[in-house]
Amino acid sequence: MDLTSLKWEQIRIWLLWLVLPLLIGVLIASFVPRPVIGLVRLEDAINSYTARDMITQINYAIDHPEIRAVVLAINSPGGTVVDTEAVYMELARLRAKKPVVIAINGIAASGGYYLSVNSDYIYAKPTSLVGNIGVIGYLPQTPMILEEVISTGPYKLWGSPRDTNMRQIEMIKLGFYEAVRLGRSDRLKIEPELLLTGEIWPGTEALRFGLIDDLGTETDAFVKAADLAHVRHYKAVDLALYEPYGIGNESYPFFLQSSEGITLPYPNKPGIYLLYIPQLPGKE
């Protein structure tokens, strides 16, 4: 075997035993996904459309292993009870597998805070509005009959007696309080009688009461999520890009519209809500 042949033999051996496995290894390694921290945004009241939107994204996060954690950025006064509960229960499924970190932006009130407590960590801005724990609803009217409406029972029209409705609201409140108590556990530093007043607090006060874990931004939330998920060099992805379910939900009239076209903070339909209804400016 001449020298040239020997060199080629050595090259062939290195190619066969080192470079080729290395290339194969690189190829295989490329299947190890870059971790993703998913971002789910709630920038509206929690209604059937926004809830479906969120649930779709949550399910996407559950189903995709590269998504190692989720940041839920909340700016919501709450919404309907059932839609809040629906998102809350899906969040529990997600949390069983992946960390969820909350970044409260403007407000996480009532149902917005209900969702927040189903998380591993909560950030808020110093003046974010946090709390308003409780239920609000309009009691149904007393039974009456209308000439043009025929029904088969006194409560067919409004659904339930006023007293029953009131007590159901209390039961919903118990569920809300329990969610807060379990979600915050020993981090909660506020007595129930104050917590249940329905008061809303700025982020700094919310931190003092243990309603949140720290003051911080969405960036902080991503860092925390990565830390909880034990990942680094992650990619942040807005999950709405992958599951843009809620196309056109801006037109959903959850809030009442004045005759001048102004959106008011009152829900469009009577019912029971986990909703913060702020006072209108300039009104007594």
Partner: peptide, 28 residues
């Protein structure tokens, strides 16, 4: 060959992951 095969996998994994995150029991 084996080292060459697994090194990229190990490197990439360690680049992205610091371990396995254990999830607590979620109370609702």
């Amino acid at each position: 060959a084996l080292a060459a095969l697994f090194l990229p996998l190990l490197a990439r994994t360690l680049w992205f992951y610091r371990g396995i995150a254990q999830r607590p029991e979620i109370a609702t």
